[in-house]
């Protein structure tokens, strides 16, 4: 065993392939409350049930909403073993949308489509751009974003 798997280096990604990541993650009330607070997010619609109960019509779904940054972080997490275990850094994200709300108890799955591969400004790694999608089990897309990651090259790191 090595620290990272040898199937997710720069050379292993093929433009056009879609990787369906195996694991899902149920986002719990605890996840939403803890992460929203951990990062100093003060928007009450993520953590004040009384506020929602007093005027449910004013809030999406009439329920506490999971903070989008948590949804995105879990979606990246679900994709990470297959896309960025061998990454040196996350570089860019663009055209990201929260297309549907996520509520406590919803389960998220992730898929990554390889959009582009290109050289980086260092010889030991290359840039891979993925279209990352987070979905509920019924296929409802909750988040989509283009994600560019700097990934190690096998040629440099796995020399025999």
């Amino acid at each position: 065993m090595s620290i990272t798997n040898d199937g997710s280096y720069f050379e292993d990604f093929t433009v056009g392939d879609t990787l369906i990541h195996q694991r899902g993650r149920t986002i719990t009330e605890a996840d939403n409350h803890i992460f929203t607070s951990l990062v100093m997010n003060t928007a009450e619609l993520h953590f004040n049930q009384d506020l929602i109960d007093k005027n449910p019509g004013a809030y999406v779904g009439g329920k506490l909403l999971v903070y989008g940054g948590v949804v995105l972080a879990f979606t990246v997490g679900l994709a990470s073993e297959d896309t960025s275990e061998n990454a040196i850094a996350e570089v860019e994200m663009d055209n990201g949308k929260h297309t549907n709300p996520v509520f406590h108890g919803d389960t998220i799955y992730a898929e990554s489509t390889v959009l582009e591969k290109r050289d980086a400004d260092r010889p030991d790694a290359g840039l891979v751009k993925f279209k990352l999608v987070g979905k509920k089990p019924d296929g409802t897309v909750v988040v989509e974003i283009e994600r560019t990651v700097l990934v190690k090259r096998k040629l440099h790191y796995l020399q025999p």
Binding site: T36, A43, V60
Partner: peptide, 21 residues
Amino acid sequence: FGLSVEDLSERAIAHLGYEKM
């Protein structure tokens, strides 16, 4: 993002997305 919420989006209905990150 979290540090920006009180100024920008504490009264938001929804945070819609991310661009040019």
